[in-house]
């Protein structure tokens, strides 16, 4: 059992440029095992870019990136998934024409072994593994509360259910760190409330959660610590109460009280 104070993810001086645009500069953060860590900031602040870096979809230009004690700068996405970082996407990216169950079963790929020979021989070990994959997938669908849709195609699920399915699929990779990119976007109040319960359940099961969210109320009630990005820079970090009253943060949010920020627009870049 790890203690709460263990550092799981440590970023130092992360920089990422797109042509002339510094999407991230000098960003450092450390996330401890077992916490729910919030990442907030106005549109275009660089939150999703940070996710793409820690999941290997983008390569960082500067800085160091340590996860669970090893360095992972410039690794392929599947290496990071294997290391224990799983994510969801801001613009849902499910395997649209596979069923909910199949989607989660794909998530088990990284923790299972059957290769081409296993598939061809269809031996005992392979069959046992297949059965275990399916069983685990059912459990996870149950865990996120969409077990009755296990045979529905991902694209035919409602928006909220798709978000939950993405979480189940990510959990199937047995992550140490689960990175959720605006999981509550587009949800109504009731759905958001039950999502909050789900995230607590995930944390209690021993998975550290990194959460991007625009819904400040959700962040405040849920996160142990929060960091604020603005124009690619970290402008504040701390417990939610502290951050909420930080003048720089208030200024970043159009000089007003930290409340609901504008909804993000879907359909940009990766994520």
């Amino acid at each position: 059992m790890t203690t709460v104070a263990d550092t799981l993810l440590e970023l130092r001086g992360i920089g990422k440029r797109f042509g002339g645009l510094a999407a991230l500069s000098e960003v450092s953060l450390h996330i401890r095992s077992g916490e729910i860590y919030g990442l907030i900031g106005p549109n275009g602040a660089g939150k999703t870019t940070l996710f793409n870096i820690i999941t290997g979809l983008y390569q960082l230009d500067e800085g160091t990136f340590q996860f669970a004690g090893s360095s992972y700068a410039r690794c392929k996405p599947h290496v990071l998934a294997h290391a224990g970082i799983a994510r969801t996407f801001q613009n849902i990216r499910l395997f649209a024409n596979m069923t909910a169950l199949e989607n989660v079963m794909v998530g088990r790929h990284v923790r299972t072994h059957a290769g081409i020979w296993g598939a061809l021989a269809c031996n005992r070990a392979t069959r046992d593994e297949e059965r275990a994959i399916e069983k685990r997938a059912h459990e996870l669908l149950h865990f996120v509360g969409i077990q009755r849709h296990s045979n529905t195609l991902a694209k035919n699920l409602s928006y909220g259910e798709q978000r939950r399915l993405e979480i189940a699929r990510a959990l199937a990779t047995e992550p140490k760190l689960l990175a959720l990119d605006e999981p509550a976007a587009g949800m109504n109040a009731t759905e958001t409330e039950s999502l909050k319960e789900l995230m607590k359940k995930i944390r209690d099961s021993g998975v550290t959660v990194l959460l991007i969210e625009h819904d400040v109320k959700l962040i405040m009630g849920l996160c142990d610590r929060v960091a604020v990005l603005d124009y690619g820079k970290k402008i504040a970090e701390g417990v939610p109460e502290e951050v909420r009253s930080n003048p720089a943060v208030i200024a970043a949010y159009l000089g007003g009280e930290v409340t609901e920020a504008p909804r993000p627009q879907a359909g940009e870049g990766l994520g």
Binding site: L57, P77, A81, R93, F95, V110, A172
Partner: peptide
């Protein structure tokens, strides 16, 4: 279905 998502799932 989705190569990016597949790679993020560890494939």
């Amino acid at each position: 279905e989705d190569e990016v998502a597949a790679s993020a799932m560890g494939i």
